[in-house]
């Protein structure tokens, strides 16, 4: 079972690497922090009203955190949806689902391969953005101690560990959007509709978070989980938002995945 899913996963990754939209997403994720740093080098102002924004010229370590904040609104959801919304719909569009489902693999194995490939891409996008941001920022302003959200200084080595942890936590809500996109891709069989639908879902989650009267549900909205990494940047570390992000995102991941799995398992594979 694991070996079979492994073989499918390997080829799902190969298929992603053979498609332009994958590179479009990855290039966008790496270009954004570079452009961000270049603009800040050429200008005097800065993003002072966002977390760590006022320290951005102190150390390259601050850059990925600030870029993650800006990209959570629609940039990374769109980049994620580009692939997640297409991964099943493209098979319907090319009519290739019948080709792979008449071999020796069960539908559940094929679905698992697609989920793993989508999450791998999402993971790669987050880490590409974070690490390129770190590299670009460090080239511009050096790799110096980071000022935490509590105002204390964090050594560069420890700051790097905090960045990696933050990227992992940031990956969780993005995985929620990826799974929502995968569900739309499975149900609608339409790539464009799934990409747009996923983006709308992400924007709706952000919008709900800023509407008055939503305070009681705000901690459980997907958009809120994009800020969970702030907990790592406090002294001492505040694990509450991180732990909440883990279980809240687990729900946002598992519910659409479960729905998509059931549809994928039972759907009629007829021509479009």
């Amino acid at each position: 079972m694991i070996a079979a899913v492994g073989r499918i996963y390997e080829w799902e990754i190969a298929k992603l690497l053979a498609q332009k939209r994958t590179y479009l997403g990855l290039i966008a994720a790496t270009l954004v922090p570079i452009v961000f740093v270049v603009v800040l080098v050429l200008q005097t102002g800065g993003p002072n009203d966002v977390p760590l924004g006022r320290y951005i010229r102190d150390t390259g370590l601050a850059v990925p955190f600030v870029v993650l904040f800006f990209m959570s609104i629609w940039g990374l959801p769109l980049i994620t949806a580009l692939v997640a919304g297409d991964i099943v719909a493209a098979e319907s569009h090319n009519d290739t689902l019948k080709t792979i489902l008449t071999r020796s693999r069960d539908r559940g194995q094929v679905f698992a391969g697609k989920v793993l490939a989508t999450l791998t891409y999402t993971f790669a996008v987050v880490f590409a953005l974070g690490l390129v941001g770190l590299a670009a920022g460090s080239m511009a302003w050096g790799f110096h101690p980071l000022t935490s959200l509590s105002g204390t200084k964090v050594a560069p080595g420890h700051g790097l560990v905090l960045l990696l942890g933050s990227l992992l936590v940031y990956f969780l809500p993005l995985a929620g959007i990826a799974c929502f996109g995968l569900m739309l891709s499975t149900v609608t069989r339409n790539s464009a509709a799934s990409v747009v639908g996923s983006l709308m879902f992400a924007l709706l989650m952000q919008l709900l978070g800023v509407l008055p009267g939503t305070e009681s549900v705000r901690p459980y909205l997907l958009g809120t989980q994009f800020e969970a990494w702030h907990g790592f940047l406090r002294t001492p570390a505040d694990w509450a938002p991180v732990i909440r992000a883990i279980w809240v995102c687990a729900l946002y991941i598992s519910i659409p995945l479960g729905a998509a799995y059931l549809v994928f398992l039972r759907r009629d594979v007829a021509s479009q």
Binding site: E10, W11, N94, D95, K98, T99, I100, S104, V110
Partner: peptide, 24 residues
């Protein structure tokens, strides 16, 4: 195959067959 064979248009014939071999 039904309704004509279909393949991944962005992969070569050889890679398409290797992919299908992995599904077997």
């Amino acid at each position: 195959f039904v309704e004509g064979p279909t393949f991944y248009p962005y992969l070569t014939a050889r890679r398409n067959l290797r992919l299908l071999a992995a599904y077997d």
